[in-house]
């Protein structure tokens, strides 16, 4: 059984390189990556994934669909992405019905109460805070946990 993973984070090629490499070494994980909300939106619209891990402070990417957020100096395009695919545009994402979502971010859970409300309804255990000491094995276990989590 392989977990098809999409990890969305703009730092994947900087301080997350080693965690990303650790994923390649796992036999049960097939990792895919996206660097901004636009890239992620179209990847998610075009193919199913078992697990999606999102960073909240994402850049929007080039698409104009984020303009309203952009004009208001919004920073959390990870939240905007989740809100779009589970809220107003959910009809385009029917194929993600079985997908489990997780959030891996530098912010605290208390700063993002909207993640746990409709339409995102994120499970509290699927939220993990990035810290400099967060080891790659713990991160891989987090992905496996998200995969096993209930909707």
């Amino acid at each position: 059984m392989t977990i098809k993973l999409l990890w969305i984070d703009d730092n994947l090629f900087h301080d997350l390189t080693e965690k990303r490499m650790a994923l390649y070494m796992q036999d049960d994980i097939e990792p895919h990556f996206a660097l901004d909300a636009t890239e992620a939106f179209y990847r998610l619209r075009n193919e199913p994934f078992d697990v999606v891990i999102v960073d909240l402070r994402l850049p929007p990417g080039p698409d104009d669909m984020w303009n309203t957020y952009r004009e208001n100096n919004f920073q959390k395009f990870g939240y905007a992405l989740l809100n779009a695919i589970m809220g107003p545009q959910k009809d385009q994402f029917e194929h993600l019905r079985e997908t489990r979502f997780g959030v891996f971010t530098i912010e605290a859970q208390e700063e993002n109460p909207e993640l746990f409300d409709d339409p995102i309804l994120l499970a509290e255990d699927n939220f993990k805070v990035k810290t400099h000491a967060y080891h790659e094995n713990a991160f891989i276990e987090f992905i496996r946990h998200v995969y096993k989590s209930l909707h």
């Binding site: 090629f13 390189t17 080693e18 990303r20 490499m21 650790a22 390649y24 070494m25």
Partner: peptide, 14 residues
């Protein structure tokens, strides 16, 4: 290139 070097290093350590 950077990815390949990092992944190669992991594989070589293994």
């Amino acid at each position: 290139e950077k990815d390949n070097a990092a992944l190669s290093r992991r594989i070589l350590l293994e």
